[in-house]
Nucleic acid binder design. Structure first.
Length: 839
RNA sequence: GCGGGCGUGGCGGAAUGGUAGACGCCGGGGACUUAAAAUCCCCUGGGCAUUGCCCGUGUGGGUUCAAGUCCCACCGCCCGCACCA
């Protein structure tokens, strides 16, 4: 073979065409092989792929290629999460149509992905913004409606009074609209909801079956669903009315020092009707964003209504406040506040000078222990609590609930933090909700025969607000029920709906239905799903819900959509900046010359400050363009970098030195392949052993997605093969290195496969066989410790007896010196591992 | 604020409770070369040092013959919080 270098600029495209010509990555629906559905979260078509996408899709690609090599029929599809706000923003800022912008982006990004050599079945590509996708989504939505899982109710949105537009949470900055700067108001609109709460218990229970999901994600979902058992009971107010409150801490009821309702609570409304100050306070609460984070970090504010509530046990009159930290959406929208044992109540009580009473203490003796400036939410025994004194928190909860139920003023109740899913968006670039509002018939579903309800093309995005509302003709239709003049629903669906079933469409895509349940059942569940941790709750919970909801209405027979989940880390990069006029000015890596000591700007040769390694973002300019690095180093070096060093669940810091190292390794492998000699004879037992151990270990590592470890082992085997003298064993080791590296560096592997005289594609080759007999070492190194400190090591035959190990350890000169005549009192021997002499 | 996670050399990291730092990057030294690039070899946690010894996994405690790993408390950073995707 020639001594020339491997040239990705001509090899990459050649092999990509060869794979395409052979259609190697097309999933065969009729295959009898065991199936493997490998899926990465599909991207939003922003225009350019991000290095984070490259990392995500490289991981899935290695697994998909490995599965194919180990005898599986692989489904590895790709598509586009193509609806959403960025297309509308681009339309406003650049004057392009959201659809044209989106499809252009898809074309660009698809070409970028193809240049990376991913083993994707492009024949199943979907774009959610295409009527051939969202039309089916509309049909599914109608099915869910028929199944009683869709309803309408009033719900608050962020309203920009200047732009006359509904704003997303991310468009509200410090309580103001991002474009207009106007103070945002909360406004109530009638909106569409999906009954995810009907499935709260099932979604919670289902987590137990997800053995191969990260514990942290399951825990986050469990907390999000937020099942709590508590007491709902009624206070009698001083005006004679009843006020229902819910508490998860009935054990602390004797510590209640005030009662509070949300600003939207009917009691607050009633007070405000007669009290201008109360009205003003409620309006103040309506200013600012709607997010939980904002509500909970805002300063606690309250308004004393002058009313009081009678404590059910003590008969005390507790003041009734309207408070900004009470959420109308949770429980009854009203609380009994126990400042000693809830931090929010504590803050509020401190601010308004309300009593803070201890009713739970570490022990009965601590009944009068003062608080250390904060509430104590922990466990303990009840104190200062009448009949509860001395009880544990758990017993007291049960006891109070039993008493309330016996006396008829309250009952034990399960409450969920999970709320129904509001899917209405007052925006153009989304799936039209297939309903018609008729003045005489009310809300009427669009007949399925009239689907898809498509978006109008001729819209003016330069005016704020929803173009579907002001379009001259689009919304005017005849009522499907009575034939009279009616109007289309102008809200579109949350884009999370689009991503809640795309994995089903990948598995089966008939033209006349969303999917065929039997075809889907043959591929589902997704065997390995890979994506960012930022989707741990919403996307993954919504997809689980859709799967269940479709099952509940008989459209699907899958319990959980994703058998195995992996959440990968971000790609990060150091930042380069200079202080100019008191503000940092950032430079991109391309503008910088990076040396050992520091970095200078190429333009002026003067130093710049190297900042922290953070997530790549345009504003900090610490981005690298996948196209540029692929052009410079080839797809394989980039893929190898994505897999090396950092464990895949952690952040990966991009570095120029790192990619250079990968490039050198590509060439090093190429030289090694060049040393392959099919005619070499002779055996190298140690190398054979190393090969089989490495094949087994790399397989385990890939299955566990521990790519960084697989990479390290391939480096080791490469070094061993390089150092070995020519032999049949060595040639076999070179062939093994090629096969092991092939899922990661497929272009180089194909080139090498041909070079060593193999026929066919390595993409369709088999993973090397492992001989279990060669996995075991016959010699081991045993550590010898004295009092837990390493003093010597012994090289002995594997399986050497405890007695012999102890004798060998005591015979060691180093051990005797360390013992220094001291008497050995105890000996711990772990066969094949260590001897510890305790003196 | 609430929920979840992470923290090991100059850097990325490895390590079923059992030899801390595998493997890679950076750096240093050498070989080859007229020279450079490329490649190959050696060294590379810190401190003291004559064989060796001491210290060391964010901080402080604890359990254990033995702790990066288990327990408690704290510090720092990151992710999510329901209309970003």
């Amino acid at each position: 073979m020639s001594e020339t270098r491997f040239d990705p600029s001509q090899a990459d495209g050649r092999w990509q065409r060869a794979w395409n010509d052979a259609q190697c990555f097309r999933a065969d629906d009729s295959s009898t092989k065991p199936r493997a559905y490998v899926l990465e979260m599909f991207p939003y078509p922003s225009g350019r792929i991000h290095i984070g996408h490259v990392r995500n899709y490289t991981m899935g690609d290695v697994l998909a290629r490995y599965k194919a090599m180990t005898g599986h029929e692989v489904l590895h599809p790709m598509g586009w999460d193509a609806f959403g706000m960025p297309a509308e923003n681009a339309a406003i800022e650049k004057g392009v149509h959201p659809g044209a912008w989106t499809y252009q982006n898809i074309a660009n990004m698809k070409a970028q992905l193809q240049r990376l050599g991913f083993a994707l079945d492009w024949s199943r590509e979907v774009a959610t913004c295409d009527p051939s996708y969202y039309g089916h989504e509309q049909a599914l939505f109608l099915d869910l409606y028929a199944g009683g899982l869709v309803y309408r109710k009033e719900s608050a949105v962020n309203w920009d009074p200047v732009d006359q537009t509904v704003l997303a949470n991310e468009q509200v900055i410090d309580g103001r609209g991002w474009r207009s700067g106007a103070l945002v108001e909360k406004r109530k609109l009638s909106q569409w909801f999906l009954k995810i709460t009907d499935f709260a218990q099932e979604l919670l229970d289902g987590l137990g079956s997800l053995e191969h999901w990260p514990e942290k994600v399951k825990l986050m979902q469990e907390n999000w669903i937020g099942k709590s058992q508590g007491l709902q009971f009624a206070f009698t107010l001083s005006d004679g009315e009843k006020l229902e409150v819910y508490t998860t801490r009935p054990d602390t009821i004797f510590g209640a020092s005030f009662v509070a309702v949300a600003a939207d609570h009917p009691v607050a409304q009633k007070v405000a009707a007669e009290n201008a100050d109360a009205q003003a306070f409620i309006e103040k609460c309506r200013e600012g964003g709607t997010t939980a984070a904002e509500l909970e970090t805002a300063e606690k504010l309250g308004f004393d209504t002058g009313l009081t509530a009678k404590h059910p046990f003590t008969g005390a009159d507790l003041p009734l406040y309207i408070a900004n930290f009470v959420l109308m959406d949770y429980g009854t929208g009203a609380i009994m506040a126990v400042p000693g044992h809830d931090q929010r109540d504590f803050d509020f009580a401190t601010k308004y000078g309300l009593p803070i009473t201890r009713v739970v203490a570490p022990s009965a003796a601590d009944a009068d222990k003062p608080f250390a400036g904060e509430a104590e939410a922990g466990d303990g025994v009840c104190v200062n609590s009448g009949f509860l004194d001395g009880m544990s928190v758990a017993d007291a909860k049960a006891s109070v609930i039993a008493r309330a139920e016996g006396e008829g003023w309250g009952e034990g109740k399960t409450v969920w933090r999970l709320r129904d899913w509001g899917v209405s968006r007052q925006r153009y670039w989304g799936t039209p909700i297939p309903f018609i509002h008729c003045p005489s018939c009310g809300v009427v579903p669009v007949p399925k025969g009239q689907l898809p309800v498509t978006l109008p093309e001729d819209v003016d995005m330069s005016i704020p607000g929803n173009p579907l509302v002001r379009h001259p003709t689009w919304k005017h239709v005849d009522c499907p029920a009575c034939g009279g003049a009616a109007e289309r629903e102008t809200d579109t669906l949350d884009t999370f709906v689009d991503s809640s079933w795309y994995f089903l469409r990948f598995a089966s895509q008939p033209a006349d239905r969303p999917f065929d349940p039997e075809e889907v059942a043959r591929w589902m569940p997704v065997q390995q799903y890979i994506g960012g941790i930022e989707h741990a709750i919403l996307h993954l919970l919504y997809a689980r819900f859709w799967t269940r909801a479709l099952k509940a209405i008989g459209k699907l027979d899958v319990a959980e959509p994703f058998a195995q989940l992996f959440t990968q880390g971000m790609v990060t990069h150091e930042t380069y900046s200079r202080e100019e006029d008191g503000r940092p000015v950032y430079f991109s890596p391309g503008e910088i010359e990076r040396g050992a000591e520091g970095a200078v700007l190429k333009d002026d040769g003067k130093p710049v400050e190297i900042g922290r390694v953070i997530k790549m973002s345009k504003s900090k300019k610490n981005v690298v363009d996948p196209d540029e690095i692929v052009a410079k180093y080839g797809a394989d070096a980039v893929r190898w970098f994505m897999l090396s060093d950092s464990p895949p669940e952690r952040d990966l810091p991009w570095s120029e030195a790192g990619i250079e190292g990968c490039w050198r390794f590509v060439q090093r492998l190429w030289r090694l392949f060049g040393q392959y000699d099919a005619t070499a004879t002779g055996q190298d037992k140690a190398l054979d052993r190393k090969v089989h151990q490495t094949v087994a270990a790399v397989a385990d590592d890939i299955e566990a997605l521990s790519f960084n470890k697989a990479v390290a082992r391939i480096y080791e085997l490469t070094s061993a093969a390089e150092k070995a003298a020519p032999s049949a064993s060595r040639s076999n080791a070179i062939r093994a290195v090629l096969l092991l590296a092939s899922p990661m560096m497929p272009h180089l592997a194909e080139e090498g496969w041909a070079a060593i005289g193999e026929t066919g594609l390595v993409a369709e080759a088999d993973w090397p066989e492992v001989d279990p007999a060669l996995l075991v070492e016959d010699e081991v190194t045993v550590a010898v410790q004295v009092k837990g400190k390493l003093r010597d090591t012994l090289t002995v035959a594997k399986g050497t007896s405890k007695e012999e190990l102890e004798a060998l350890a005591l015979a060691s000169e180093k051990v005797q010196r360390a013992l220094d005549g001291a008497e050995v009192r105890k000996v711990i021997v772990v066969p094949d591992r260590l001897v510890n002499l305790v003196a």
